[in-house]
Amino acid sequence: MTTALNGKLVTVFGGSGFVGRHVVQALARRGYRIRAAVRRPDLAEHLQPLGAVGQIMPVQANLRYRWSVDRAVEGADAVVNLVGILYESGKQSFDSVQAFGSRAIAEAARAAGLGAVTHVSAIGADPRSPSAYARSKAAGEAAVLETLPDSVILRPSIIFGPEDDFFNRFAAMARLSPVLPLVGGGETRFQPVYVGDVAAAVAKAVDGEARAGTVYELGGPEVKSFKECLELMLKITRRQRLLIPLPFGVAELQARILQMLPRPLLTVDQVRLLKSDNVVSAEAERDGRTLTGLGIAPSTLAAILPTYLERFRQHGQYDAHRAA
């Protein structure tokens, strides 16, 4: 239920995406007015029912055009940047979106008189990474902190939830294919974090409950290998599939072909990213730069995955009423 409006306006860049809709809802429940800055406002109308009448308003903004970013930030009391891409397409390159775009948002916020932004990055952001995605994430973080040093950076591990691009993708593959690939042997470790918990962390940062100038690492309560994630997905969807190890070299060769598709199933850059574990660091745990440090109890995979993966069972949600 939406609370009474508090009079403050938050501009959320990337508000119509998977993470965005949960962030918008979390902020709306706290009484903020929300300006969802997106490239296609006509595709963001699904956000408006998440709040009271007139509380959520989509506006057009493209990070490659600074004037549109300035216009989206004008008059805002806080700014959140959720914009990110998993693969490059046309003018949407990692550098233009995740590095240049992040700097544009921070500079626009500074010009509007704000002292900080809340910036969502990713665990694995590293200027020395072999992955262009990870390098651009690191460049975006650096640009934000250089422009507004009091900003809060949130680095989630792989995010799961109803519209995620990981569990849903492999569950869909398991419907049709008798085998599933384990890139790199399936040994890469993840710390999957629920999208609702990431949204809560963003809302706490906007509320001023996060430490200024701090990089938080957001992970769930469990660390699981790539193989263990797929095994759990298969258990929930009640399907038996063969898991085939795919060496990184072979995966890269296949990715060179698959990345030519309009919506790539796998890219070379993603294969390179999978060569490193994606978990919360010991330093972040020690310093309290985690979900728990923000006062958020992370949700488990077992509690959330069945709520949206049951549709991939042989008889959909009706399988829930059949003997296991």
Rank of each mutant, 00 (worst) to 15 (best):
L230S: 02
V202L: 01
K227W: 06
S225M: 03
R238A: 12
G208K: 01
L234Y: 11
A210G: 01
A210P: 07
K224G: 08
A210N: 01
R211C: 05
Y216S: 03
G220C: 05
K224R: 15
V202A: 00
K227T: 15
G219D: 02
E222K: 11
K227D: 11
L234P: 05
K227F: 08
L232T: 14
I236E: 08
R211K: 13
E209S: 10
D207W: 06
L218E: 03
C229K: 12
V223N: 05
E222Q: 15
R239S: 12
D207K: 12
E209Y: 08
E231A: 10
R239P: 10
G208H: 00
G220Y: 10
V202S: 00
G213E: 12
G213D: 07
V206K: 05
C229R: 09
G220H: 10
E222R: 12
M233V: 14
L230I: 06
P221W: 13
L218A: 00
A203G: 04
R239W: 06
A212P: 14
R239D: 09
R239K: 15
E231F: 06
R211S: 11
M233E: 10
Y216I: 04
S225K: 03
G213N: 05
D207M: 12
R238S: 13
R238L: 11
K204P: 02
E222H: 11
E231K: 10
A210R: 04
E217G: 01
D207Y: 07
L232I: 10
A212K: 15
T237H: 08
R238N: 14
E222D: 13
K224S: 11
V215C: 10
L234C: 06
V223A: 13
E231M: 07
D207H: 14
E231W: 08
V223R: 15
L232S: 09
E228R: 13
K235V: 12
L218W: 02
I236F: 06
P221Q: 14
E222L: 08
V215R: 08
R238E: 14
M233K: 01
T237A: 01
E228L: 11
R238H: 14
M233P: 00
T214E: 06
I236V: 15
R239V: 09
A210H: 04
L230K: 04
F226S: 03
E228V: 13
G208N: 00
E228F: 11
L234V: 08
K224P: 04
A210Y: 03
T214P: 03
R239E: 11
A205H: 04
V215F: 04
V223F: 11
L234H: 11
F226N: 09
M233Y: 08
E228D: 15
R211T: 08
A203H: 00
C229F: 09
R238Y: 13
G208F: 02
T214R: 13
V206S: 04
R238P: 01
R211Y: 07
G219H: 06
G208R: 01
G208S: 02
K227R: 15
E222V: 15
V215M: 00
T237M: 03
E217P: 02
Q240G: 14
V206C: 10
C229H: 05
E222Y: 14
Q240D: 08
Y216D: 04
K235S: 14
R238W: 09
Q240R: 15
K224A: 14
P221C: 09
A210W: 03
Q240M: 10
Y216Q: 03
R239G: 09
G213W: 10
D207P: 05
